[in-house]
Amino acid sequence: MNCLICSTSFIESASWQKLFLIKPADVICNQCRSKFEKILKTKSENEWSGTIYEGALDSVKSFYTYNDWMKHVFQQYKFQLDVELAKIFVEDFRPLRQVQELIVPIPLHPEMLHERTFSQVDQFLIDANVPFKNVLSKTENRSQVGKTRKDRMSTELLFSVQENVQEQHIVLIDDLYTTGTTLHHAAFALKKAGAQTVRAITLIRV
């Protein structure tokens, strides 16, 4: 097996789980794996209290920090369009197969999707075999990059809800959590459309 990141060949440690195909073989070597930094404790959010978005998002959990290594890998994935790298995070998203809630990825604007050729959020779920539903749609094709925190927090609603989510329990999925604008807007729209609970999971917490 050649590592997806450093392309050196590596031998994986044996385990019963892998032998019985319960756990898939890793796609990157131990050294590359060890450079990712997991987040163990989740910070609680209070920057949104006092705004109309307060209480829209019930909780947020992120898997990794945005360290230099993650920046490097993520850049290759999202901007050099190396779709295959989504496989690195299969183990993180796999437990979502068990949840009863409706899994909703944050969408790209259709124009952006056409340009990027794949959705970097959906791809995590596709590779981890997690069923999901695209109930949100992005209303404008504007990037959050380059905006200040205040700008981001005060923009108009970024999403519209395309399907009936009355009484539903929802898990939002996104790649990066920076200021939380995207997720708060999405959660706000979902709650307004009748969703009962909305929590979120992101790969990276900046």
Binding site: L81, D82, V83, L113, E115, T117, S119
Partner: peptide, 18 residues
């Protein structure tokens, strides 16, 4: 991968991706 641009399975090269 499933390509959103050509709406189907699409092949790409990782070797010279940079």
């Amino acid at each position: 991968f499933q390509c959103a641009k050509c709406k189907g399975p699409c092949l790409y090269c990782r070797h010279c991706i940079r």
